[in-house]
Amino acid sequence: MATGQTVRELQDRIRSMQATKLDSRLIPTHPAIADLLPGGGLKQGATYSVEHSATLLMALLAGPSQAGSWCGVVGVPEFGVEAAEGFGIDLERLVLVPNPGDQWLAVTAAVADVMGVVVTRPPKRASDSSLARLTARLRQRGSVLLVLGPWPQSEAMLSLSESEWSGIGQGHGTLSARQVTVTVSTRLGGRPRSARLDLDFARSPADIARSQADMTQSPALADRPELRAVV
């Protein structure tokens, strides 16, 4: 155990010394998920791949949306708008491009130019060169790309498992609350990190975020000075 710990610490040090780019700025997201992510949050210009879960996607989007980012959803015609609102995503700053067809890569790039967070689902594998162009564009614009499905150069892979519903029985009740395990694995290897997440829909998402921020004391959020627009 102690050896494993040391090895991990050493790996972290090597990684931090090898980092070629400056510390990129973080975009706030759900605090419990942010803790699992490498760097403690969604990095601007990075790509994250999310495995088949719209819930996880919405949990990730809620934070940036509440912080004032515009969110674009490309190629996901089944995106549940009402659920998105329930998660605290501001619909006024949410733009949907349900059917980009063959032009999904161009559309994703165009949307990423102007939006802080972009969700896309590749209908097919794109060529490495076009992916590299998109990645460069994301870095330049500082947008975050969330991909539903696998992506070759993602910063981290997020998946959701061991979902347990409460409030529903055999022929009675309704779906009311859910506990899930969120697992984050990174490109650089290392052990996947996971956490148990409580999705209680009776409370407002802002409450959840606040209580979890208190609980976990995520440095990314706690250190952020409170800014207020002066008009």
């Binding site: 879960s53 996607l57 995106f79 549940g80 009402e82 659920a83 329930g86 779906l175 009311s176």
Partner: peptide
């Protein structure tokens, strides 16, 4: 009743 489904076909 809430929650709303996240994927609507």
């Amino acid at each position: 009743p809430k929650p709303a489904p996240s994927t609507v076909f």
